[in-house]
Design a protein around this nucleic acid. Structure first.
Lengths: 330, 330
DNA sequence: ATGAAAGCGCTAACAT
DNA sequence: ATGTTAGCGCTTTCAT
């Protein structure tokens, strides 16, 4: 009654061999035109869809793409997943999203599950701290590191953002508007992207003849809580910061939460430069200044990196520039 | 060299039959303890993962769950996908997320793709306006309608929110604080959930002896743009609204955007009650009042509805209450 | 132009 | 306790 419609069942139905049905449906020339039509009609009427499992078993490739993200609640990740998802639909790829919560063990499990599905590609925001999980990735699975990069990229391609210029601009802008005690809260040193951001900040400070106060420079896990805690302590104390530059999505939101909960007026009490550009930043107080990432373009480029065709399958690196968006907060 | 590790390759490797390997790995008792151990060790060392495709072909069920959402940019959907994704990982289910953009054709395609994967369940926020796409769903696929409900639910289970009480409370609260010209912008009549919300609003207005001004009641597509446009026109004109109640996530954000871009102070210029409770609502002006949905609980209940086991597989309906969160805006 | 056979990875059902 | 067979849906190869 409700059995799956297969080429075999259609073949039986029409009294032909299942091979004829296969040929008819896959556009092989050697099928009589009228027969092809009636087969196609019957298939459509019965709602036939070809079994992905059978294709995979035959070795046709699973057309499954895995996207490993820390979470979806941060609007940057949500926007990326959204845009990337649309690209995948256009490419007729099955997108499976896995949330790692920035936890290495979950990341490991997700890759394992992706292997079960015989996924062809994994686009991942690598969790900080661990370098090993690439070992789990089979040789035929392509890896694209997104935003963050591990120390030993090896076989992985990467799609990063070049935020050095924006961070420099942020510091310059703050100095220009009279700030000297400019704090930085960003991702830890285990990620090369984290190191880069910190370096940009430090370099920009020095370029303006300012020596970064170690008490105002905080690195650690790229989490909301980390941003919240450090923002609080950076604006308190005997020599508080007068400006803050964030180097991470969750960190930025955490820091912002801390400032707003503490009743701070931005930029009067603290000049604030966030990271990432969620839509609501422009609605908060006079608007939150921020380093904005080209989300849609990132998704497009990521999608273009999915097909191994357009170049040698050697690991490639792409980098897209960020931009500094100045609003009321600093 | 880099061929897939299968039970057969392991069997050859160890000089046993592939069935012994299968038994050893799946915990069948009839395998010598020491042999089982060496098989398991070898499998682990080689990084064996069982092929999902093969399981599916055998009819073991694909353990694939589809989640069809309008998009991921709205924080409610992102939060739901996030929480639901974690539930799926716990249940060892493969979650594939499809973005419909509230477009019936995309919805149709997504369901088709899910059929290719022989997905077992689809959790979907149905697109407005179309009732037909359920026809595409094979008899063995379970359907759970989320948040919205089509007119003819038929075989579909549903997981809705009961927001009638919150909307009534919102209206009562506004009346109590002196408002009479209370506007409502919500989802259209093609969705039973949209009709319900509108009815709650109307009923609450009447209960306070107020006759809703038709010019202040707007329904349509549940989109950002729809909310933006209608909010603008509702606060302008000769007899503008003094308060606004929103009945939809995107509508709420769109309306909020319109108000903030127009430079309105909430609640001085307009008392505002949003829908959904994105984290940033509490950061805007004095905080945006809103109808809050129990996202995590929705995800948990949705996950519990995935297994057909705990009751007859007849369509079930669950409904979770929303709550009214009052902040500064109204 | 059409069909039959084989094999992809796996396990239930039979041997042994 | 271990091995052999068959079949899930599909296409490639080899007949007819």
């Amino acid at each position: 009654m409700s059995d799956r419609v297969t080429i075999k069942s259609i073949a039986q139905d029409l009294g032909v061999s299942h091979m004829t049905v296969s040929r008819a449906l896959s556009g092989h020339p050697n099928v009589r035109a009228d027969l092809r039509r009636s087969i196609r009609d019957r298939a459509a009427a019965l709602g036939y869809v070809r079994s992905a499992a059978a294709s995979v078993m035959r070795g046709d490739g699973a057309r499954v793409v895995g996207l490993l993200l820390p979470g979806l609640v941060n609007e940057f990740y949500a926007r990326f997943a959204d845009a990337f998802g649309r690209c995948c639909e256009d490419l007729e790829l099955h997108l499976t999203i896995h949330l790692t919560n920035d936890d290495a063990e979950r990341e490991r499990l997700s890759i394992r599950r992706l292997r079960e599905l015989e996924g062809a590609v994994v686009v991942m925001v690598p969790t900080p701290g661990v370098d090993g999980s690439l070992d789990l990735i089979p040789a035929n699975m392509r890896v694209i590191h997104l935003i963050r990069q591990r120390s030993r990229p090896r076989r992985a391609s990467s799609l990063l953002v070049d935020d050095g210029v924006s961070i420099s601009e942020a510091v310059s802008h703050l100095v220009r508007t009279g700030h000297e005690r400019i704090a930085y809260i960003g991702a830890g040193r285990t990620l090369s992207s984290g190191r880069e951001r910190l370096r940009s900040y430090t370099k920009a400070m020095r370029a303006h003849g300012l020596d970064p106060d170690p008490a105002l420079v905080r690195t650690g896990s790229p989490s909301f809580e980390m941003g919240r805690t450090n923002a609080l302590s950076v604006v308190r104390g005997t020599k508080p910061a007068s400006a803050l530059v964030c180097g991470g999505f969750e960190i930025s939101n955490g820091a912002l939460d801390a400032c707003l909960c503490a009743g701070l007026s931005l930029p009067e009490d603290l000049a604030f430069i966030g990271y990432g550009d969620p839509s609501f930043y422009r609605w908060i107080q006079g608007g939150i200044s921020t380093v904005a990432l080209p989300v849609d373009e990132l998704a497009r480029v990521a999608a273009s990196m999915l097909s191994p065709g357009n170049a040698a399958s050697a690991p490639r690196s792409n980098s897209l520039p960020t931009s500094l968006v100045l609003r009321g907060s600093g």
